[in-house]
């Protein structure tokens, strides 16, 4: 199961639409991190609207992925955590999802753009030679 990673200039969009097995989740993590490095992405938005179960393992994979992306130098935001997923994660324990979140992909993108702008990196487009 391969999760498609969409590229919008130097922002990467990932929408997890299927229930991932642990192996799928690890594959997704390495694919995404690799691609962030490859294109020197400025930001990554991970949409999990379709996930109706996020257990501690999946939460860790999502958190770790967001941290890895940030270590590489890109901003990251998790979008569309379902209300009952949020409820369950908080009931299970604190800090299961520590990454930055947004209601939906649209808002996530807005957050990324603002952050990238305040960071002073204006090369949203690919014209690095200018």
């Amino acid at each position: 199961m391969k999760i498609p990673i969409l590229r919008l200039e130097r922002i990467l969009l990932v929408s997890i639409q299927v229930d991932l097995t642990d192996n799928d989740a690890m594959q997704f993590q390495s694919d995404l991190v690799e691609q962030v490095a490859e294109i020197e992405a400025l930001g990554v938005a991970i949409d999990i609207t379709a996930l109706d179960v996020v257990d501690s393992y999946m939460a860790r994979v999502i958190n770790d992925t967001a941290s890895m992306v940030r270590l590489l130098g890109a901003e990251s935001v998790i979008c569309g955590v379902q209300p009952f997923v949020a409820l369950t994660l908080v009931e299970m324990g604190r800090d299961l999802l520590g990454a930055d979140c947004a209601f939906n992909l649209g808002q996530g993108l807005e957050i990324l753009r603002t952050r990238i702008a305040t960071r002073g990196d204006t090369r949203l487009s690919e014209d690095e030679n200018v």
Binding site: V53, D55, Q82, T88
Partner: peptide, 20 residues
């Protein structure tokens, strides 16, 4: 309800993963 569905699914996910 949806909250209980999510709770149980998540609990089962945790326990079965431990087994694997």
């Amino acid at each position: 309800g949806k909250a209980d569905q999510t709770r149980l699914a998540t609990a089962v996910s945790e326990l079965t993963r431990n087994v694997i």
